[in-house]
Structure formats: structure tokens, C-alpha cells
Design a binder for these strands. Structure first.
Length: 283
DNA sequence: ATTAACGTCGTT
DNA sequence: AACGACGTTAAT
């Protein structure tokens, strides 16, 4: 369905865009494909994003929007904010943490735990502005994508993503095992996480990975991590080269290209999980 | 069958 | 190195 041709669905509010072209009409027609990916001219969602962020989260979203106001520069690296406000710095800090060059999946664990409220926000206080379902320590960029998916997907930031959280998250002294399919305890118990999919889907994913590894030569197509900022993005910009050349390029929007996949695929230490899914310690 | 997108390779 | 095209894999 040509990235740009999703069917109009749901009242979803896309708030997930790098700024690009300046404005456009007020009609908010969002096109989403089967996977829930919104592909629309940036201008629309941009506009919404503006109003939304300005009114509620003030400049928080400067994290991945902002600055260069309206300039359609297509620079994937723009997720990294320029030094700015305190809030910005915090977002940058977290973001930087997660993008650690080491590529340790520890970062992924930290991210999930952080969302679950297990980790204190780095700056620690003064930031109760966003009570997203009781989950604190949300970064501007989190808000960005959460807001984007809040209406229908509710991908992240929802307590339902952490089923055990309600009764006190089991601070398992043992292992949290991160996989593209989600987070597991060492005994194989599925905890949650992953890229906006259900536990069932997590399981299926793990299964398919298992079979792929079993009959494959290990040279399996890598999958998006699902938790990095680009992965959480739900809109195609429709303006980057990948979007423009989708027909021939077969590439995902640059703004949605998984940080993990951007890194060179190199062996690293891989461990087989109880589910059969491989887990890489290093990239 | 269709669609999305990763991997690779040639070109700039 | 970045980009574009193509083959291919995986999901629906």
C-alpha cells in the first residue's frame, strides 16, 4: 500500500514528527496502514504536534521536533536535540544513555524499567507535569510517541504493558532478559515490553525467531528493537529519501529506522533464551 | 498475493 | 559515506 496510502482509520493523533514543511490545512486526515504506521505529509501532524506540545508540554517536545523551525532538513540525527533548556537536557541525557555506543541491551532494560517507574528520572524532581497513567520519568520523546499512539494503540507507557506492576513489580533479584520480543525473567516468564504488541504476539514472534534460527544459517534478517525512539515513531515522514523512494528503495522512513539496525550487524555475544529466541548482548 | 522493510551492492 | 536500486525475507 505504498507507504503513503494507508487507509484512513481511527481518531489517532499523530504527534510524532520531526518538523518539516510549514503547516497545511486543518483537516486532519490520517492514513495508517495495517501495522498502524501513519503515513502522512508531515505538515499535518506537525501542526497538531505544535499545538499539542505548546499547550500542554510546553517546549518539552523540542527534543525531536523543535529548533530549525519549519526547515525541512532531513536529518535522521535530529532526534538529538541541541543543548537547550533543562528539560531538553534531561531528555537528551536519557536519550544519550539509551543510545550508548556500546549498544548494550542494558539500555533497553533500563528504558523499560524506567517507563515502568522503576528508575528515578535522572534529574529527580520538579517534573510532575506529565502523569501519564501514573508512569513517571517520561521523557519528552516518550511523550511524543506515547501521545501519538495514545488514542488507539496505547503502545507504551500504559500499565497494561507491565501486568505485574499493579501489585508491585516483582523486583526479581535474578535476570531480566531482553529480547526483541520483550522482557523475560530468567525462568522464561514473560514480563512485557516490546514494540507495541501483545503478549500473544510476543510469543509468536519468539516462536518464529526460534524456527528461523533453527533452520537458518544464523543469517536472519534482523528486526527492529521496537523501543528506540525511531522504532516508537509511528509516522512516515513522507519526505525523506526513503519515503520518497519507497517504491524502488524498499527502505523504511529514515526517521523510523531502528537505531539498532543502523549499527553494523556484527556477531556479538548471543544467548539462547528459554523461549528459544536469541538475545544479543552486544551489537 | 501484497506489503513492509533488511541486506547488499553499485554509483556518486 | 551516503544514496539508490534490487533481491529477498517476513508478515498479513
Amino acid at each position: 500500500m505504498s507507504g503513503s496510502g494507508g487507509s484512513a482509520q481511527g481518531p489517532q493523533t499523530a504527534v510524532d514528527l520531526p518538523q518539516m514543511t510549514p503547516s497545511s490545512p486543518s483537516s486532519v486526515v490520517e492514513r495508517r496502514n495495517r501495522s498502524g504506521i501513519i503515513s502522512e505529509p508531515l505538515s499535518k501532524s506537525l501542526k497538531r504536534s505544535r499545538t499539542l506540545t505548546l499547550s500542554s508540554a510546553n517546549s518539552a517536545n523540542a527534543n525531536s521536533h523543535s529548533s530549525q523551525a519549519g526547515k525541512p532538513s532531513v536529518d535522521p540525527s535530529q532526534g538529538r536535540p541541541p543543548a537547550g533548556s533543562v528539560k531538553l537536557d534531561r531528555g537528551a541525557l536519557l536519550s544519550g544513555l539509551l543510545d550508548s555506543p556500546s549498544g548494550l541491551h542494558l539500555a533497553q532494560a533500563a528504558e523499560l524499567l524506567r517507563r515502568a517507574g522503576m528508575l528515578m528520572p535522572l534529574a529527580g524532581t520538579a517534573d510532575t507535569a506529565m502523569p501519564l497513567g501514573g508512569v513517571t520519568g517520561i521523557t519528552p520523546s516518550d511523550l511524543e510517541s506515547v501521545a501519538a499512539s495514545a488514542a488507539t494503540d496505547s503502545v507504551l507507557g500504559s500499565l497494561s504493558d507491565f501486568p505485574l506492576l499493579g501489585n508491585g513489580f516483582p523486583l526479581h533479584p535474578g535476570l531480566f532478559i531482553m529480547t526483541p520480543a520483550g522482557v523475560f525473567l530468567a525462568d522464561g516468564t514473560f514480563i512485557g515490553g516490546g514494540a507495541g504488541i501483545t503478549a500473544t504476539e510476543h510469543h509468536q514472534q519468539a516462536q518464529s525467531e526460534l524456527s528461523a534460527v533453527a533452520n537458518g544459517n544464523g543469517k536472519k534478517k534482523r528486526k527492529r528493537c521496537g523501543i528506540c525512539e525511531p522504532c516508537r515513531r509511528r509516522v512516515n515522514c513522507d519526505q525523506c529519501s526513503s519515503c520518497r523512494n519507497r517504491k524502488t528503495g524498499h527502505q523504511i522512513c529514515k526517521f523510523r529506522k531502528c537505531e539498532e539496525l543502523k549499527k553494523k550487524a556484527s556477531g556479538g555475544m548471543e544467548v539462547m533464551l528459554p523461549t528459544g529466541a536469541p538475545f544479543r548482548w552486544f551489537q
